[in-house]
Design a protein around this nucleic acid. Sequence first.
DNA 1: CCAAAAACTGCAATCGAATGCGTAAGATGG
DNA 2: CCATCTTACGCATTCGATTGCAGTTTTTGG
Lengths: 345, 345
Amino acid sequence: MVLSSVTLREVANEAGVHVSTASRALNPETRSIVNEKTARRVAAAAERLGYRPHPLARGLRTNRTLTVGITVPDLLNPVFPLLYAGAETSLRDQGYSLLVGAGDDPANPVAASGILIDRHVDGLIMANAHIHSSLPQMASNQPVPTVLVNRTTDSIDAPSIACDDHAGIGLIVRHLVELGHTDIAHIAGPQDISNGVIRKQAFVAWMHSEGLDTPPELIVETNGFHTAEGRKACKRLLDSGARFTAIVGANDLIALGCYDTLAERKIKVPADISVTGFDDMAFIDRVNPPMTTVLVPFYEMGALAGQVMLSLLTSDDSGAGTLPTSTRLRPVLKTRGSTAPPAGS
Amino acid sequence: MVLSSVTLREVANEAGVHVSTASRALNPETRSIVNEKTARRVAAAAERLGYRPHPLARGLRTNRTLTVGITVPDLLNPVFPLLYAGAETSLRDQGYSLLVGAGDDPANPVAASGILIDRHVDGLIMANAHIHSSLPQMASNQPVPTVLVNRTTDSIDAPSIACDDHAGIGLIVRHLVELGHTDIAHIAGPQDISNGVIRKQAFVAWMHSEGLDTPPELIVETNGFHTAEGRKACKRLLDSGARFTAIVGANDLIALGCYDTLAERKIKVPADISVTGFDDMAFIDRVNPPMTTVLVPFYEMGALAGQVMLSLLTSDDSGAGTLPTSTRLRPVLKTRGSTAPPAGS
DNA sequence: CCAAAAACTGCAATCGAATGCGTAAGATGG
DNA sequence: CCATCTTACGCATTCGATTGCAGTTTTTGG
């Protein structure tokens, strides 16, 4: 396809009508206003000249950019490109493009979204919310239509799409219990991120419901969902002297960090200690040993976020109407080689 | 930071000047035209009101969007987020945002860039070029300033930044030869993509320079740089009955596909057959066995592409001036566990 | 056959910022 | 002290499309 700088005025001339008529003829919303034959003539002229509406001119007038922003904490974690791809497919059909903002600074949680909002995105899909994140408000009046995805927060009143982390941890805990584990440790994510909090609480809850204990020394927290944090936390766990036969990592990267630390200390996974992750990120089924984890449907989450965003954008009632929905997608246990019965059994 | 819908007119009123003066005072290019004290008064007013220029209004007038498009073949291959991140850091400082377009359809190579160009990006970073890709031209006159990265093509006259694939294959071949391999197979990438062609040619050239033969049955081609393609190609290789002790994959994913097929047939890597990849993508050092490959500096390539783009965008001479540069970054051999001396030695 | 209503289409303002051009105020100089 | 040149600023147009309003034509109905 070829982009020209053909203007609506030229199309109008070609069709022998006024630009306003041409505008209405070309806009599906207003096509009915203009005589059908005229509309066809305009459409033909537009086609012939290769007319493409100028997005800036249109946006300036209509105050809409057909652009949606998406903020992710970290593009290098392969789950976020998945999320992006899902959202992109939902939105592209309706003519929307996605602007990405990456960043996960708790001190300045809206740094990424700020740039996007400055660019007048029509909506914002936030995948990097912190517990206390607030939305950058337009000083004028209305906030940008927002959808929370992946992470949630009560401090932003917006529809949210996430994984049912509680259920996911349940799958993991029950799996380990069925294998015979009773002394299970948890390396929790940051406690200013919903997933970190929920997974930790779920861990405690499920352990108790299995009649198992969760001594404080078997729960350590990290400052980020990263490999390096997992390595450090695993060391703390081992150095505490506490006994345990399995580690529930708050996500795959943290669990990968455990792999590193355990390997360093000649502790075998899963023979000596079982390790589990969370997310089922790409290639995690190929690491050594293949990691038992819980699949989080990131692509679907992104796609759903895109659809919800579309409904926000097309709903005429600006915000006041439908109350925010809260969707939780079902996780799936992926049993692989990083879990086995405890050494004693 | 807060976005307001404060208009330049309001700033001008607040400062007691005309909008044109306010405009000039706020624009670094023209600040010198206006009295310094006035300029400061305007700047203060803008600050006080929280003025942010409206990107659409500005863009409409100046015909620049401060947006650069980047097209990648596949966001789910982790090397492309890396590339993106590199470009993003280079461009963000100068106020540019990146619009991503993903797609790798040879039949419609410019599908992704079409959307971007329709959105009036100021420049285009293409990472998904095919050998015969042509640039979507503006019907008017000038093409969009373009930088080729990762893949190159002669059919687009633009600066290019890529990896020195020839040298990279040399590192691999010499490594295998040093281990004692003489019967080495190559699974080539698609031959309508520069990397596929160059790596294949380089493989032949380096083998010959090592005094080794490259019988045609030991070179198979794929239709994409994907795992599934690698699996299929590896099967063809094995089914041909030809003897070989090592496989040089055109990239990491293809080599991963070899892992699968070889495992399926109980052939051990590297004991029976050595396998090598290309790219050193994330987590490839953690697969089983850790893959010997060649590091391609994607982040740096992206960063460089961003810088070259900036120089294109800021050079006043529109295209006619500096001739396209062609940069090749140096790859680095990563020796890991997927290569070993051949079985017989 | 005429009045009223409906159906089309054109006019002109508007979105917000940038900029060529003209002009008034101040500086310089002879 | 007046002519000339700067320096600073304002006026008005422009970018390309959308849209309220008004005007014209056609249709409908009585």
